[in-house]
Design a protein around this nucleic acid. Structure first.
Lengths: 259, 259
DNA sequence: TTATCTATATCGCCC
DNA sequence: GGGCGATGTAGATAA
């Protein structure tokens, strides 16, 4: 059996099952009533209530309330999860810790409604398409869709102030710095482009104080008015680029057939 | 009983329990072998393997592999989760959808090792301290810790290019724009400060091309060398501010006592 | 609803 | 290992 269930387990059972399961590479989930304390990058406290606990063998630990995508408390992979029986109360105590940064989640379990050990085997990797990396590939192969006559000179070029997406030249041979975003462009993205353009314009630059012979292109499906104005004011250009197509895969089609 | 367990349930049981539980405000978890397909902002496919599924009554849906903090696929709260029996295969199919953005996660369950309905009650809110908001309050009350003679004029001031943390004046009466970070400062944070300072310096600005009578302070516990150099080059100042103290609460102390 | 920004962001890549 | 940037970022907040 791949999933072993312990209904209303004693504190000792919780401690031993959690310890063994994680050590042996299994996932543990528990439905509990508990209090939670976090101390680390910030500190926090969650009073008594019902929560779902998830502990993974890689040190991941999650405390889920009945709502929301994000766990209310957690520890990312790389930490260590230990379970014991509290001396004073006799209740289970689960602690997840890590160093760098030093932080700690402590769950004081008041009641354990159920505990499950899940010996999961999963060697399959997630395949994704439609990411910004693919958008880069597309633009590298089709620069003319950004602007007629545009030539890509370099991709992912490193400068002293960070990496720019594309270094290109336009039809007149003028240098063009290109920053590509898969989603609606924000002020942060404008900032990035401005920073890169400044490298080539030279911060110490021209007598008129404006960027010289370097163009900056912010490429995204859309941008807020404030971002467009920021571009105009800074002498940069916003290029509306259609939503990047996420192409269907063979695997997807076969999955849909089952319905 | 607050947690009801269905070991190795039939497809019909999965479909009905998931539907009823979510409708009645319970959390459902399942240990399954499955395939997953995502289509929306990007598209992706995850081949057969063992995963933990979590469905919450607010529409949250999570697919967890045996490793990592983040679910491999998910739907944030606000979506709808439905479970049915596949016509061709007779296996359970769980679909989570939402609009705006339009996206969809489909889980094709190959084998259900176990299913749990958890009627969780949790009306307690999480209390946190040590956040950037508290750091702001501290600085607003103690501006002299940034610099002797500094006066805060305005907090969270809106400009045409975004919101700046503090608008202040130094001992000489020179305007000072302050950007505060709780964590190590990055180039992104430098960008933000530069953008705000540009608003006051005026993009069209001085004959020498450098910012005029406005100072910019980047306040954080630390910064990389590249960030410090960027600040120097741009005429901005990095201020090392000690890690913001996360003070212990009474609740924490009592929780620690149990150990 | 839209825009902006924080986050215990997490994660991955590349030096 | 540190720096840097993407994320199906999510979530909170203000206009």
């Amino acid at each position: 059996m791949t999933a072993e269930r312990y209904p209303s387990p004693e504190a000792e059972t919780v401690a031993s099952v959690v310890g063994e399961a994680l050590h042996e590479g299994a996932i543990v989930t528990a439905e509990v009533r508990c209090e939670v304390e976090y101390d680390g990058r910030t500190s926090g406290y969650l009073g008594p209530g019902d929560r779902l606990l998830v502990a993974k063998p890689d040190g991941t630990f999650l405390v889920h309330k009945p709502t929301n995508h994000k766990p209310v408390n957690w520890m990312p992979s790389g930490g260590t999860v230990t379970a014991s029986v509290g001396e004073a109360s006799g209740d289970p105590v689960i602690v997840a810790r890590r160093t760098d940064p030093r932080e700690r989640v402590e769950v004081r379990v008041r009641e354990t409604y159920g505990l499950t050990r899940f010996d999961a085997e999963d060697g399959v990797a997630y395949e994704e398409s439609g990411t910004e990396a693919e958008m880069h590939e597309y633009i590298a192969a089709n620069p003319e869709e950004l602007e007629a006559g545009l030539r890509i000179v370099e991709h992912e070029r490193e400068t002293k102030y960070g990496f720019l997406d594309f270094y290109a030249k336009d039809a007149e041979g003028t240098p063009v710095v290109v920053e590509v975003k898969r989603v609606q462009a924000t002020l942060t993205h404008f900032d990035q482009l401005k920073r890169y353009v400044n490298v080539f314009a030279g911060d110490e630059d021209g007598v008129d104080g404006t960027a010289r012979s370097v163009r900056g292109l912010l490429v995204a499906p859309s941008a807020s008015e404030r971002v467009k104005r920021a571009c105009r004011d800074a002498g940069l250009e916003f290029v509306a680029f259609p939503d990047f197509e996420t192409e269907a895969e063979g695997a997807n089609a076969s999955l849909a057939d089952f319905e």
